[in-house]
Design a binder for these strands. Sequence first.
DNA 1: GAGTTCTATACCTTTAAGGTATGGCTGCAA
DNA 2: TTGCAGCCATACCTTAAAGGTATAGAACTC
Lengths: 307, 307
Amino acid sequence: MELRHLRYFVAVAEEQNLTRAAARLHISQPPLSRQIRDLEKELDVSLFDRGTKSIRLTEAGRIFLIEAKSILERINASVDLVKSVAQGKRGKVHVGYAASPTVDILRHTLQIFYEDHPEIDVDLHEMSSKAMLRALREHELDVALTVSLSPRDFDGLAFEKLGAHEINVAFHQKHKFGLVNEVSLREIADQPIVTFTREEHPEAYAGLCKLLSPYTTSPNIIGEYDTAASLIAAVEARRGVALVPQTLAQIAGGRIILRPVHPTPPPLPIAIAYRQSNNSPAATMFIQVAVAAKAKLAPISGNVLTV
Amino acid sequence: MELRHLRYFVAVAEEQNLTRAAARLHISQPPLSRQIRDLEKELDVSLFDRGTKSIRLTEAGRIFLIEAKSILERINASVDLVKSVAQGKRGKVHVGYAASPTVDILRHTLQIFYEDHPEIDVDLHEMSSKAMLRALREHELDVALTVSLSPRDFDGLAFEKLGAHEINVAFHQKHKFGLVNEVSLREIADQPIVTFTREEHPEAYAGLCKLLSPYTTSPNIIGEYDTAASLIAAVEARRGVALVPQTLAQIAGGRIILRPVHPTPPPLPIAIAYRQSNNSPAATMFIQVAVAAKAKLAPISGNVLTV
DNA sequence: GAGTTCTATACCTTTAAGGTATGGCTGCAA
DNA sequence: TTGCAGCCATACCTTAAAGGTATAGAACTC
């Protein structure tokens, strides 16, 4: 059975007349006659009672008419749906993000995106930078908001810098660092340090070593954590101090203290990454919004310190 | 677009591989490749991202896969439905009936029918015998339960006698006929008479004239009514007496009195009528049940008189 | 870098959709 | 009653398009 059979059947059923139906379908009457018979033969159901001069629906035919029309309408609706997905009017985009460095950017982007594209779902996945890159390549993610890794890690992917965040030192409420307005890297190098896992966040470990290299060749890392929440908990529990993007304060909510570091380290760049080609329309829309939102975002989001 | 395109698309989408999909569809790979491109061209939507060695769904393609599978399933379900209608397992039958003479038969038939064919709807239409015959020919009814008319009226239709009902005289509660157990036709001929409309119930008028012909050439008909309910109301309102099937008592519910007539008139035959050919399976089932039910029904349903 | 594994292109074969001509039945009208 | 118009079915031909074969070309594997 093909859709042609359904279309032809509907025409004949509605016209109750093969000749008129054929005219409506812009074909001649004999092939139409045959298509209808083919359909009946395939279904093994009489759809019409035939007189020599008349053709009229059987009860089964009446039911099939309702079904056929509804199927044809369903197909039209599906085609419309798919077209709107292809045009980026509807759809779904999978976004991976690193919780701590991207809070600002993500919040801002989502606000604009939900307003401009209410029919597109955004699936948010908090994950490590390494997991994001893998997921992008596996098509499990469409977009990643992450700290800027080495260009080699972004191989085969497109990425664009969205901003940069000041690096601060985070420590316990009662730590001696709280007594000064700025902490030197030399002092930090003497402290026990907690950081993100080397395995999942290679950029964090590498960055840490690089910052402290003038003062120590082997920083005293006494704990590695896979999420921002765990790292905050570790600092709060006095395990050690941490070098983190200043935006971590927004997640920590005052449970720990952040202070600027001197000499001021280069700010931590935040990037949006995506596949170079074959992005879904919804993903393309999201990328557009994120890049546009960056322009409107303050260069570095103030100097908010938690007390 | 044809169903072939949907079937092929589903195979390719599920296999994520043209060659395997072609094997599954028992066709060779190049035509499949072309059908898929034809589909995309017609929809004006990219359903797959193509690498030289790979083919993978776009977001629109993922949506279309869901739609296409659901459409194909829907078609299967429709075919099953239509087949079950064609086999008389489901469906609808339009039954016309004359309220007063067929109460017994209809009730009995429906009881059995609903039990044997729970998936078949019975649409009941109370109407005049003339309207029933017209509706049968126009395919608005499938079956008519009616008093047996002259064979000429049944021309082109099949009919079968289901039973016969005694003719009684119906009169007001305080009418003098209440004093005797049996009323003579001669006495009735002297009374003002109400009956069914000549137009819609020709058999009733003809029967009445025939019964009274030995006693009067022009019966004193002072009212004609189109339904049993109106006739009962007229008798109750003392407009006149009526010659009616004895089963009218079941509808009147004691509001009027019915008594046998003498000399006993020939009983009123009840028949089931239907088209000679092209009946729906549901209608055929109904006819079978009605005819079978007749056998089990008491020859004439007792001698119940209202008081 | 040869071999394998895909998809795409080119071109041919075959199936079946669509067209033309016509016959036959039926119902209506003269 | 006969003739004509209307309508469906059959027979047969044409044509479009589905499907097949061969092969090129790209990319991954060993």
